[in-house]
């Protein structure tokens, strides 16, 4: 269902938060998996998800309701995730698995077996793009803009991801 974010933003600007739950529930999953694509950690992603929406509301006066609100939130959540790594003195080198947090939320593994396996199979950059496309449902063009990377690089990483998953998952 296409949600009209513009009306909600106008309401929030007036201080009316009565429809915030509808707004939040319509986009929380996309934002969450956008964050998760980088952190690979459910609890950290929850924290950053909350920070994203709190920051969004705090700066609502400066939000242009006519722009792509979902894209705006995606960019904001991504920046906050990168800030999180910086604050924790962690260099986010997406090509090096060793620099990405590899904490597993043990109690969640049973419920997300395939995703857990995919985390291990793919390189961080591939996992990020794969998750953004499949779970955040962003188009390759949107990912390309968000990551400021060429479209070809994005589609190549995604193809590589699919290829690796195919090779490892046989039925």
């Amino acid at each position: 269902m296409e949600v009209n974010f513009k009306d909600y933003v106008l309401e929030f600007k007036k201080g009316d938060m009565s429809h915030f739950d509808v707004f939040y529930n319509s986009c929380k999953e996309k934002i969450f998996y956008n964050i998760f694509s980088l952190t690979k950690n459910y609890e950290v992603s929850e924290d950053i998800l909350q920070d994203t929406f709190v920051k969004f509301l705090k700066g609502i006066k400066d939000v242009n309701e006519n722009e792509n609100i979902l894209g705006f939130l995606m960019m904001m959540s991504r920046n906050l995730t990168l800030d999180h790594f910086k604050k924790n003195n962690r260099v986010l080198q997406l090509d090096e698995t060793k620099d990405i947090p590899q904490h597993h939320d043990e109690h969640l593994i049973d419920k997300n077996i395939i995703l857990e396996k995919v985390k291990d199979i793919l390189k961080p950059k591939e996992f990020e793009i794969f998750t953004m496309h499949v779970l955040s449902e962003l188009t390759f063009e949107e990912i390309s803009k968000l990551k400021r990377r060429p479209l070809g690089t994005i589609t190549r990483a995604y193809k590589n991801a699919i290829k690796k998953i195919k090779e490892s998952m046989v039925i």
């Binding site: 707004f23 709190v54 509301l57 419920k111 395939i114 995703l115």
Partner: peptide, 30 residues
Amino acid sequence: RIDDQTIIKEIKHDATYQIKTSSEDILIQY
């Protein structure tokens, strides 16, 4: 080997994680 669409379908179906942060949590924090 499974095909692309099956992979995507399986992973989407598998991603059953329930986001704990509610809209109320956010408004309280805000």
